[in-house]
Design a protein around this nucleic acid. Structure first.
Lengths: 232, 232
DNA sequence: TTCACTGATTGACAAATATCAATCGACGAG
DNA sequence: CTCGTCGATTGATATTTGTCAATCAGTGAA
């Protein structure tokens, strides 16, 4: 692949401490491609041929069963996805599609596994990355099982507010119907949930959200670092 | 700790390929303890002081929020739990309590992290273990978001049947109220769900379950390897 | 044996959430 | 500009799930 994206990728925790030679090997084996929106990059059940890295744009991880579909995560630059399937050489458990026009690096899984066997620092970085992914997934399980959809939305908004720098006004990063799916509810229910949060100072206009009084919303949402704080 | 359990632990994937000397270091630093039932071994939010291994008995991983509680997993011999918190040196995201009288090995997290830095095979084994845990958690998310509670129960029963050797009769491994919590429903709802599966040939007596016609139940449950098959 | 305790079950009811149909509103193509 | 499309919203209704209270059944202790 072209050298231009190497520095962006190199600084990712996953690659930051590996041997330069091994990193170059991975990069030489890789492809960079631009995809239009709504392209299905991978399909659940297929063998994990590539480790993917989003350089620009955004990617949705989703899954289907029995005619239903749910959004599991949205991946934004610059990060990798489906690392677990790659190292286990196991089928993808989720599908992925581009949401926007996106630039994606594809690193052949075979090469990743080979360097994983070679490079001890890379193996250690993978440990930390997977531990992070696992813990995030446990948080999501707790969010789903311990909270109602209204509580999930309230906490999601508080997390987004923090992400947006703590400002009392910010834009939703994803379409509402995708947000609904991500939160485990229907678009209709999400609409009503936004209304139900109005008494707590939440107003919505398009994808612009305003939180009048953070404390007020927190009193309802009861955010908890063991569910909501991705840094712990 | 006493040597008696070393062989049992040594054969775990996590420890099977590490240097003998490093394994001995871990074992020497460890404690073995017997606990009565219903003892809270760890509490969510606390620093991860020990990697735990269940030698006998059983342990429930659970979490609380806002007065509610949910069962996230049940750990049976011989396996480890809360590896991710240990390697990340981060607080536990879940609490753990013994269900039965249990024998537990406690390996100081500090030692685990030290050997992780030393022993490349150990680091690689941790990668595979965490990748497995992560994928299991993704399966659970899909189960929760894509299926109704009745469908979750039906698929749970089919998985248990396989685990029991494919026999058409088997015993539930956990109390019904814990099963309800694990499946994300109330005990009352579980009772009714069992009844609702009767037309598909499921009968229950205490914790004895009989599945008259597996195909019949599968037609309703629609089990899917990407959710239900832990070996893929 | 009897009693007390605990978990499972049942019925009645309430709350949460989904579904269906209709409408609204923004936006791009022609 | 106008039309057509798609996502968001709303209302009406159905389904799913939870809550509360009562009862049942098994178990162990006195």
């Amino acid at each position: 692949m072209l050298d231009s994206h190497h520095p962006d990728i190199r600084v990712l925790d996953l690659f930051a401490n590996m041997e330069e030679e091994n990193f170059q090997t991975l990069m030489r084996a890789s492809y960079v491609q631009n995809f239009p929106p709504q392209i299905e990059l991978i399909t659940e059940g297929e063998p994990s041929d590539f480790l993917h890295i989003v350089i620009s744009g955004s990617v949705e991880l989703f899954s289907k069963w029995n005619g239903r579909e749910t959004c599991v995560a949205t991946i934004r630059p610059i990060s990798s996805f489906i690392l677990a399937a790659t190292v286990k050489n196991a089928p993808y458990l989720m599908s992925a599609r581009t949401l926007d026009k996106s630039r994606i690096v594809l690193i052949p899984s075979q090469n990743v596994r080979a360097i994983f066997d070679e490079d001890n620092n890379f193996a250690r970085a993978i440990v930390l990355e997977l531990a992070y992914c696992y813990r995030s997934s446990i948080r999501k399980t707790k969010d789903l099982k311990l909270r109602t959809s209204l509580e999930r939305l309230a906490n999601y908004l508080l997390r987004q507010q923090i992400r947006a720098g703590g400002d009392d006004e910010f834009n939703l990063q994803i379409e509402k119907r995708r947000l609904a799916s991500y939160l485990g509810m229907t678009p209709e229910n999400l609409s009503r949930a936004f209304k139900a949060l109005k008494p707590y100072g939440v107003t919505v206009d398009g994808n612009r959200v305003m939180i009048r009084d953070q404390n007020d919303l927190e009193k309802f949402a009861k955010p908890n670092p063991l569910i909501d704080d991705r840094t712990t």
